[in-house]
Design a protein around this nucleic acid. Structure first.
Length: 319
DNA sequence: AACTGACTCAACCGCTCTGCG
DNA sequence: GCGCAGAGCGGTTGAGTCAGT
C-alpha cells in the first residue's frame, strides 16, 4: 500500500468545484496572491485540500487562460514541442502561456495522439516523412532534449530573478508575445495592472464557468443567480470592450499573479503599491547587458521561428 | 424515446523536485 | 548530508455529453 492520498482526510470535499467555491478562492487570491496553498483552505474555509485549490486556480480560474478551440498554430506548436520535449507538458505550456499544461495534455491525448497515429499509418502507406522527422528528433537523444529544456528553464529562472522590476516599455502593452521569453515576460511582467480589471478578468472566467454551470444544472437557481449577478457586475467594467482588452488584460492579470507570487502574503494595499511602484533603476541598469543577452538569445526560440526552424522537418505532410 | 459506446475534460493520485531547518 | 513539508508535474480516472443505432 502506498501512502494515503493527501485528500483522504475527513471533511475534505472532492469532485467538481461550485461557483461559490470558485468565488471564495478567487477572492482570497485577489487579496493574498497565489502561493502558500497550504493556508488557503484554512483561511478561506474551503473544504478542499491545498492541492485541489492550486489546481483549480492554475487550470481554471487563473486570469488569462484561453479555453477550447486550439488554433492550427497552437496545434502545430504542440506537436512540434512534444516531439522535441516529450510529454513535458509544463515545459510545452510555457510556450503557450494562455494554455494550461492540463489543457495541452488533454488535447494531446484526445486529439493529437489520434491524429498523429492516423497520419502515421497513412504515412506508412505513402512513405510519409513525419515518422522520419520524429525519429530524427529522437536521434537527438534524451540528454539533448533535457539539456535544451533545462537551458530554457534556467533562462526563464534567470529572467525571473533579474527582471522583477522590469520596465514595461519592452513589450508594448497591446503587442502579443512572439517569443518564449516574451511570453514569459508577458506572463510575468506586463504593464501595470489595476486590481479592478484583474478581478474583472477572474470574474469573467467565473462568469464563463457559470454560464456552463447554469446550463448544466438549472436546479440550483437562487444562490447561483445572485452569484452570477455578482460576477457579471464585477466584470461589467470590461464588458463591451472585451475583445480589444483581452490581450492587454492577460498581461495585467499575469503580472498581478506574478507580483502576488513574489509578494507572498502582502496585503491588497501593499500589493497595489507594489504593482504601481516604478521600476528600480538601481538594480535594473547593471543588469541590462545580461538581460539583453537573455532576450536576444531567447529570441531565436520564438514561436514562429520554432515553427520555421524544424517544424517542417518533423511535421511535413502532416497538415 | 431509449439505449449504448465513444469522447471530452476537470479533477484526482502519486511521484518527484525543491527549499528549509 | 538528512529528513520533512510543500509545491509542481505527469498519468489516470470518471462523470457528463454527444452521436449513432
Amino acid at each position: 500500500m502506498g501512502r494515503p492520498p493527501c485528500c483522504d482526510k475527513i471533511g475534505i470535499k472532492k469532485g467538481p468545484w461550485t461557483p461559490e467555491e470558485d468565488i471564495i478562492l478567487v477572492s482570497y487570491i485577489q487579496e493574498h496572491g497565489p502561493g502558500n496553498w497550504r493556508l488557503v483552505p484554512s483561511n478561506t474555509g474551503l473544504m478542499r485540500c491545498s492541492k485541489s485549490c492550486r489546481l483549480r486556480w492554475t487550470n481554471y480560474l487563473r486570469p488569462g487562460i484561453k479555453r477550447g478551440n486550439f488554433t492550427d498554430h497552437e496545434e502545430k506548436m504542440i506537436i512540434h514541442l512534444q516531439a522535441l520535449l516529450g510529454n513535458r507538458w509544463a515545459a510545452i505550456a510555457s510556450y503557450l502561456p494562455q494554455r494550461t499544461d492540463n489543457d495541452i495534455k488533454n488535447y494531446w491525448n484526445t486529439h493529437l495522439k489520434k491524429k498523429l497515429k492516423k497520419m502515421q499509418s497513412e504515412g506508412d502507406d505513402e512513405g510519409n516523412n513525419y515518422d522520419k522527422g520524429n525519429s530524427c528528433s529522437q536521434l537527438k537523444g534524451q540528454w539533448e532534449r533535457r539539456l535544451q529544456t533545462d537551458i530554457h528553464t534556467a533562462k526563464q529562472a534567470l529572467c525571473e530573478a533579474l527582471s522583477l522590476d522590469k520596465p514595461t516599455q519592452i513589450f508594448p502593452e497591446t503587442k502579443l508575445p512572439s517569443t518564449p521569453s516574451q511570453c514569459f515576460h508577458d506572463h510575468h511582467h506586463p504593464t501595470s495592472p489595476n486590481q479592478t480589471s484583474l478581478y474583472a478578468s477572474s470574474t469573467e472566467n467565473i462568469a464563463r464557468l457559470l454560464d456552463n454551470w447554469m446550463k448544466k444544472s438549472p436546479k440550483k437557481t437562487e444562490t447561483n443567480y445572485s452569484i452570477s449577478n455578482m460576477v457579471t457586475t464585477g466584470s461589467s467594467s470590461s464588458e463591451g470592450t472585451q475583445s480589444t482588452v483581452t490581450c492587454t488584460q492577460d498581461h495585467l492579470d499575469s503580472l498581478w499573479s506574478f507580483k502576488s507570487e513574489r509578494s507572498g502574503s502582502v496585503s491588497a494595499e501593499e500589493n497595489t503599491n507594489l504593482v504601481e511602484s516604478k521600476p528600480n533603476l538601481d538594480t535594473q541598469v547593471p543588469l541590462m547587458l545580461l538581460e539583453n543577452w537573455l532576450f536576444d538569445d531567447a529570441a531565436p526560440q520564438c514561436n514562429e521561428d520554432l515553427m520555421n526552424m524544424s517544424l517542417g522537418e518533423s511535421t511535413d505532410g502532416l497538415f
